[in-house]
Design a binder for these strands. Sequence first.
DNA 1: AAATTATTTGCAACATTGTTGTATTTTTGT
DNA 2: ACAAAAATACAACAATGTTGCAAATAATTT
Lengths: 140, 140
Amino acid sequence: MMEKKIDELLKKNHLSVTGGRKKILELFLQQEGALSHSDIERKAGEKFDRVTVYRTLQVFLEKGLIHSIPTSDNSIRYALCKEDCSGGHHHDDHVHFICNTCGNTVCLEGVSIPAIRLPRGYSADQVEMLVSGVCKSCNI
Amino acid sequence: MMEKKIDELLKKNHLSVTGGRKKILELFLQQEGALSHSDIERKAGEKFDRVTVYRTLQVFLEKGLIHSIPTSDNSIRYALCKEDCSGGHHHDDHVHFICNTCGNTVCLEGVSIPAIRLPRGYSADQVEMLVSGVCKSCNI
DNA sequence: AAATTATTTGCAACATTGTTGTATTTTTGT
DNA sequence: ACAAAAATACAACAATGTTGCAAATAATTT
C-alpha cells in the first residue's frame, strides 16, 4: 500500500530510505495539504529528533519533493509537489489558499497564477500567490 | 522637514510621539522599501531595546501605518502603507517584489493583483502576490 | 552474508528570534 | 507644573533554528 509508494518516492529521488523520512513523507501523503514545521514536529516529534525534522525538510526541498509556501504569520508551510520541482520553479504555477477558520493550507492545483505586467526594468523569476479566506469545508 | 511629517503621522494615528517610534518611522520613510525586523533592529537597535522594536511594529501594524509582506525565507518584511489600511485589507491591492540580487523588497504600487476564480466553495478574504526576480536597479 | 563505506540520526551546545511582566521613565492632558 | 496615561528598558523566559560530532543505520562491495 502506501509503504511502497513512499519507498519509491524516496528511491526515485536518490534518498536513503530511513524511518524519519518515511514517517514525514507519510504525513504529507495522508494530509494532502500543507504542513508547518511545528505540525510535523508535533506529529512525528515523539519518534524523531527536532534536528532530524529540520534536515529532512531541507533535503526534501532540495530534491523537489516538497515546496514551501510563505505565509503572513511567519511560519512557512510545506506541501508535496505533484510533479518534480527540483528545478526550483515548477511549483509556482498554482495558487495557495489558507483558511482563516480551520487554519489549513492547500494548493489549488486547478487555479493558475495569472500573468502580470511588471514595471519596466523588473524581471520576474518566480511568482507566489497566496489567498486567505474560508475554505470549502468551513464554508458550510 | 521630515521631523514634521513624522510627528503628524504619529499624531494622526493617535500614537504618542516618542523617540523609538520617530526613529523607526524615519527608517521607513527614508527607505521607501520594506524592512525586516532585523533590518530595523540593526539600524535602530543601538538606541532602542529589541522589545521596543517588536512592540512598535505591532502597534504600527494595528494602526495601519505599515503592512506586512510574507516572504519565502521566513522573515516577514514591513512596509509603509501609502494610505490608511487600518481596516486591515486596504493594502492587498498591489504586488510585492523581492529582488534576488540586492535583497530589497518593494511595493509595486502601480501593479494591481489580478482577480482570480476560486473553486466552488472557497471565498477569498485577502490576496497576496509576491514576485521575486531582479529589480530595476540591479537589472543594469 | 559479512564487511566496508557512506549516510543519517540523536545529542549537546549554542545562536537567534519572539514573548511577558514589571519597575522606571517619558509623554500627554489638564 | 502636576497627575494620569503610556512607552521603554530590563530581566527572564519560551520557541525556533543551527552546527559539530559520535553513534547508529542504510547502502555497497566483496
